[in-house]
Amino acid sequence: MIWRYIVKRIIWMVPFLFAVSVVAFLLIQAPPGDYLTTYIAKLGESNEVLDQATIDNLRRRFGLDQPLYVQYLKWVANLLQGDFGMSFEWRQPVSDLVWERMGLTFMLSFATLLFTWAVAFPIGVYSAVKKYSIGDYVATTIGFIGLATPNFLLALILMYIGVVYFGTDVGGLFSNEYKNAPWSMGKVIDLLKHLWLPVVVLGTSATASLIRIMRANLLDELSKPYVDTARAKGLSEFWLIMKYPVRVALNPFISTIGWVLPNLVSGAVITAIVLSLPTAGPLMLQALLSQDMFLAGAFVLLLSSLTVIGMLISDILLVLLDPRVKYE
């Protein structure tokens, strides 16, 4: 049954996440040197020189003098107790840094997903049902432009328009007065005011490709005999299209749940920097650059888990939506 399938999938996540943790750890360690070499180089730039004793001392304190597998095991052992370790660079517990960022990332992803669906679904259906109409051509053209425009460029254009024509501050997710304020009703409203821009920017290309997918899928389905059957029953055109071909053509929508998260975090770093979004992307990039091991590791691990969970959710929805999909 479906519950057994879900439990099985969750059990399978354990070895998978273990493998991810190994790979993540190795990847972070792969470039020559460690956080201290980066740190020393940075200090060297401002003509500060640390003597060898201080360096050794620091290395011992960070545990960087131990062999790799010991460092890994320690990290994993702490992880299992919910301790993500300390960020070298920020000198703060990793979990504090990560949760705030991941929360906002998650919310932004979700909002983008909803936006993508809300726009792509009706346009895709319209485009397919009214194939080769003016509306279809318009949607197709806009879709291709949306696909072809790099996200960060779109961000810059929208920011320019926002600042020059509407005089609003459009960067970030919060206005200055709320940036470090505790959560309140005002902060939520402020967030919503800022949210639309990154959602549009991040969602445009996904929307455009979903429109294309929906259109192509639905066109295939519209000529299937079961549509004729439904029409011969006397169903109205709107309901028969919604109930039968659209339902069958819906599968790709569900699949997007799985890839929207990793896409937003790893693919949208440039956009996030341009829009100065306090999401996970820029922080993760910084952590990787400075070899801030625990911080980077925590991000990679969390993203992988979210991806796996996203895939699981989309697979479960697929099973529920399409009885032909077997959970075996």
């Binding site: 005999p225 079961y226 069958v248 009885p323």
Partner: peptide
Amino acid sequence: GGRIGMIFQEPMSSLSPV
């Protein structure tokens, strides 16, 4: 469907699979 019913050739694909 009410006064005039119709059945089709392909029983495999004339019913919705979902």
